[in-house]
Nucleic acid binder design. Structure first.
Length: 427
RNA sequence: GCGAGCGUAGCCAAGUGGUUAAGGCAGCGGAUUGUGGUUCCGCCAUUCGUGGGUUCGAGUCCCAUCGUUCGCCCCA
């Protein structure tokens, strides 16, 4: 074993797994494209200040999980811990608000310095979406619907959409004051983390898992009761529209989410089939973020799907989609292998999927590999065939074989395609 | 950052202080100089994550360290 290994919390996605990734990317891209979302590709690292201001200094992500370093120009840079801040920065920097509502999606790696566990790594991947410029509750619902579309199209089951509203900034301020007032007398009875949060980030005490803390919270003021009329109406419309689309949800008044920028709608899609990290998709509305980062006041809504978690679920369901090999090309001799490559290339140009055996080993071994490769047919080229411009075509399932002129094989590609299709579907 | 479990080949593993470290899968070569899915034979760990210690003797016990897994925190 070599002494250099992938860093803790990072891993290689090997060929046997990559088909899952491509399937997810294909499905997501198709669904998002149909809803007029276009891809955006911001850089993977940004100025540290972007995340500090965007996500919030008091959050765990910023205070202890960022990969931050100084470059040779002594700038403080940070590997993106999430996608929204970079997209919003690009939106502001390029004046995209002047082009009306922006529907954007992105995919790629994110980085957080955390202890790895099931469904969590230091480099992980997200597919995310941002809808900027619409304050409508319908915008919230459109994005949520697209998330559920993607997950359903991939065949996932046992998913729960958890929903809450955290109100607007002034609602939260009033609620925060009320909550702190209620909790302060109980301070000594709260768990240690919650005691700290009482001053730093009181709302997040709500989703503490500590039993005693939860017991105290039972009689605490409820966030939903502190929503202003506007926030309340917004939330009602979101719920009504979800129902109209046939999307089930479960209200979770303690769903607060970790990042500071959320307003109004907050949601998570959770799976019962994951470990402790059950959230497959999380997101919400963030009406204050664009202006907070120096742009024009712009309402926005977005979410991110955790690819690793999604693929964990996919693996429980089914084998990866496996593109079938049309031909396995066996060759051996002095002149045949070189000619085999030329023939393979011509077949590939016609759209066939062809694997060329480069081993030069005995035909028996090459057949064994042809068998294992799952190819529908095997093409055999020895020096005898090479000298005559012929090739031996063998159908793996029936063992039928025939000698054809190479030109003839190439000239009848449509017929060949049909034969392959039939052979592949006879099993 | 905290807690617990686990590190024997590419993968799955047996081994619980005593001569040369089972077995299986995969891989490679051969039986069969050009015909597969079966079979048979051979090859594939001077060494048990790493370093130190205990012992006549350590994969096996102890300590440290690194890695990994699951959980806490938090999040996708």
């Amino acid at each position: 074993m070599g002494d250099i290994q992938a860093l803790r919390g990072t891993r290689d996605i090997l060929p046997e797994e990559v088909n899952y990734w491509q399937q997810v990317e294909t499905v997501a891209k198709e669904i998002l494209t149909k809803a007029a979302y276009t891809e955006i590709r911001p850089p993977i690292f940004e100025q540290t200040a972007l995340f500090e201001r965007g996500i919030g200094e008091a959050t765990d992500v910023v205070s202890k999980e960022m990969y931050t370093f100084r470059d040779r120009g002594d700038r403080s840079c940070t590997l993106r811990p999430e996608g929204t801040a970079g997209v919003v920065r690009a939106f502001i920097e390029h004046g995209l608000q002047s082009q009306g509502v922006q529907r954007l999606w992105y995919t790629g790696p994110m980085f957080r310095y955390e202890r790895p566990q099931a469904g969590r790594q230091r480099q992980f991947h997200q597919i995310g979406l941002e809808l900027l410029g619409s304050p409508s509750p319908l915008a919230d619902v459109e994005t949520i619907a697209l998330a559920t579309d993607i997950l359903e199209r991939l065949g996932l089951q046992h998913l729960t959409l958890e929903l809450n509203s955290v109100g607007d900034a002034s609602d939260r301020q009033r609620y925060r004051a009320a909550l702190v007032e209620y909790l302060t007398p109980y301070k000594d009875q709260l768990d240690a983390d919650s005691q700290d949060r009482l001053t730093s980030n009181p709302l997040r005490i709500l989703d503490s898992k500590d039993e005693q803390t939860q017991a105290i919270l039972e009689k605490a003021p409820r966030l939903l009761d502190y929503l202003g009329e506007e926030s309340r109406q917004h939330f009602e419309q979101v719920k009504a529209q979800l129902t109209a689309l046939g999307i089930d949800y479960k209200l979770n008044p303690n769903l607060v989410r970790g990042l500071d920028y959320y307003t109004h709608t907050a949601f998570e899609i959770q799976s019962a089939d994951l470990g402790a990290q059950a959230t497959v998709c999380g997101g919400g509305r963030y009406d204050g973020l664009v202006s907070q980062l120096g742009g024009d006041d712009t309402p926005a809504m977005g979410w991110a799907i955790g690819m690793e978690r999604l693929i964990l679920l996919l693996k429980q369901l089914k084998d990866p989609p496996d593109p079938r090999l049309d031909f396995y090309m066996a060759s051996r001799g002095d002149r045949a292998p070189a000619q085999a490559l030329i023939l393979a290339q011509k077949l590939r140009h016609q759209g066939f999927r062809v694997e060329l055996d480069l081993s030069g080993s005995r035909f028996q071994k090459q057949f064994k590999r042809a068998d294992r490769s799952g190819a529908v047919a095997c093409l055999i080229l020895g020096d005898a065939e090479a000298d005559q411009g012929t090739v031996n075509l063998k159908w793996m399932a029936t063992q039928e074989q025939s000698v054809l002129k190479q030109n003839q094989l190439l000239a009848n590609s449509e017929e060949l395609r049909q034969q392959i299709w039939q052979a592949a579907h006879q099993e």
